[in-house]
Amino acid sequence: MTKLSILVVEDEDSIRAMLLLVLEQAGFIAHAASDAKEAQAILDQTHIDMILLDWMLPGISGAEWARRLRKESAYQDLPIILLTARGEEEDKVRGFDVGVDDYITKPFSPKELVARIRAVLRRSGKLLGGGQIVLGDMALDAEQHRLSIGERQLEVSPTEFRLMQFFMTHPDKVYTRTQLLDQVWGRSVYIEERTVDVHIRRLRKILSEYGREELLQTVRGFGYRFSLLQ
């Protein structure tokens, strides 16, 4: 069963502990950091599907770190929810200006938090109907670890499943081999770029059995793209 990972960046110990408990009870994998520097280290080594980010952090503020992340191609589409005690409308506008996906003002209920998280994940394509991603006649069920075309289930390895999960949550976008390694394998593991090519070939062979090998497209001189468009 594949669970989505959420990184909590909060400097107050009690709030951070509460958030971790709420997320774990909701079925997510929760990671925690107390400042932007620690959070960046986790992000560099671990696949993260969403960030819950406190506005006021020691050192680099949450808003500033979000602005920096949005300048990196690997994190431009990473969902970010900003947590803050600020309630003024102008501060909310400033929060969205830095590129966050949602804004929750403290205090908030655990039920509201989880609902907002799931809403952002659905909008980003990472979560649909209890962990399902559906594109055309293709469906990926993260909870049951199933990939299917119509009624036919595809037999793929765990790595190939993660690769397809990333592609299906980021359709029609081109990614370099390095970006795919960072997002699917993680930056903490040294793997040669040609490993990506090997897994792409395997996936195409599997998809070809269903006449769908064209879904994984090579963009010459850059990398790969998953697209239902021809």
Rank of each mutant, 00 (worst) to 15 (best):
I6E: 05
E10N: 01
D11K: 01
D11W: 03
M18C: 12
F28C: 01
S34R: 15
I42V: 03
T46S: 15
I51V: 08
L53K: 12
L57F: 00
S61P: 07
G62R: 01
A63Q: 15
L78Y: 00
I81R: 13
I81G: 14
A85R: 00
K92N: 04
R94V: 14
V100R: 02
V100W: 06
D102Y: 06
F108Y: 00
S109G: 05
S109P: 02
P110K: 08
K111T: 14
L113E: 04
L113K: 01
V120H: 04
R122F: 07
G131C: 00
V134N: 10
M138R: 10
D141H: 03
A142V: 08
E143S: 11
S148V: 03
E151T: 12
L154P: 06
E155P: 05
T159I: 09
R162H: 09
R162T: 06
D172R: 09
Y175Q: 15
T176Y: 01
T176H: 00
Y190N: 08
Y190S: 12
R194A: 09
D197Q: 11
R201C: 10
I206K: 11
E209T: 13
G211W: 04
E213W: 05
Q217W: 05
R225T: 10
F226T: 12
S227G: 03
S227D: 04
S227W: 01
